[in-house]
Simulated scan of single mutants.
Amino acid sequence: MTPVYIGYFFKVEPLQPASDILIAELGELGFDSFVETEEGIEAYIIKDQHQEALVKEVSILENENFKISYTIQEFEQVNWNEEWEKNFSPILVDDVCQVRAPFHPKKETEYDIVIEPKMSFGTGHHATTHMMIQHILKDDMREKSVLDMGCGTGVLAILASMKGATPVEAIDIDNWCYLNTLENVERNNCSTIKVEEGEASLLPGRSYDIIIANINRNILLNDLPVYTDCLTENGEIYLSGFYEEDLPIITEKCESLGLKLDNHLVRENWVAVKFVK
């Protein structure tokens, strides 16, 4: 029997960070597919799991800092690929790295990454992913062991592998991200990448020259001691997923663990920062 879906079409002003927060809150209610649009997001849930009363109680809808409206539509079937294909355009980072879908034409760039993001975070369109790509492009990854923590689509692990990193590990707590990363790793012929489903509890006893963690402030603050223990001497760690105003508290935590601030990037009030052990 073909499942029936309920689709919510949100208009969001300003788009960020409201769209990210809205996706997170709807995910907790059982919404399992999201499409980012120029006006906001589309969110889908199987009709049998839909409770409109709970959606109305989502906290960000009452937040005075954002203007959010929506319409609802019922679907017999949803073609997820078609939905995100309508809104996913290729990106070019520093004229060196292209991130595109299989149906986009290939450009002559040094690094060409092909992904199908589906529900996973990390297409390069979000400011944090874009800046993390910029950091990786600047760094020498040859023969270095790399961890991509909270890998999403796997795009950062894939780029590290393309730059000569080996071995590379990609970990995400979300099953969909884990499966999507497996697909994208195979799609880009990155055989040196090991993909795992899990969290920081997997890490004790491991060692990395470079750690990439694009997650969020609270998880970073909680897990930074584990990351630091896994870093080799003079190892590098890239952190993102938080705002510019959060940089002091992240820096304070890192310095207390013996990490030294190297540099940081800012894009749309998001930050991507590099520390060295």
Rank of each mutant, 00 (worst) to 15 (best):
N65R: 00
Y5H: 01
D48Y: 09
F34T: 10
H50K: 02
K67N: 13
S33G: 13
E74W: 00
N63V: 05
T37Q: 03
F9H: 11
Y70R: 11
E13F: 14
I6M: 10
E42D: 10
E28R: 03
H50R: 03
E42Y: 01
Y8P: 02
P17S: 00
E39N: 15
F66S: 09
S69C: 04
G40D: 04
T71F: 01
F66K: 03
Y70H: 12
Y5N: 00
D32W: 02
G27I: 07
I68S: 04
I45E: 10
A43M: 05
L54M: 15
E42M: 05
I23Q: 08
K11C: 15
T71Y: 01
G30S: 09
E42C: 11
E38S: 14
F34H: 05
V12R: 00
M1H: 07
G27V: 06
I23P: 02
L61H: 00
V12H: 01
I68P: 01
I68E: 06
F31S: 04
F75S: 01
K56S: 01
K56V: 04
E38T: 10
T71D: 10
A43N: 08
K67E: 14
E57A: 13
Q16V: 10
G27F: 04
P3L: 04
S59F: 14
D20G: 07
H50E: 12
E42R: 08
P14G: 07
S69K: 08
S19T: 15
F66W: 13
Y44F: 15
F9R: 01
E52P: 14
N65F: 06
E28K: 05
T2C: 06
I23D: 04
E57I: 09
A24C: 11
D20K: 05
I46Y: 07
I23E: 03
L22Y: 03
K67D: 09
E57S: 13
E76Q: 07
K11N: 12
D32M: 11
K11H: 06
P14M: 12
K11L: 13
G27K: 05
I46K: 00
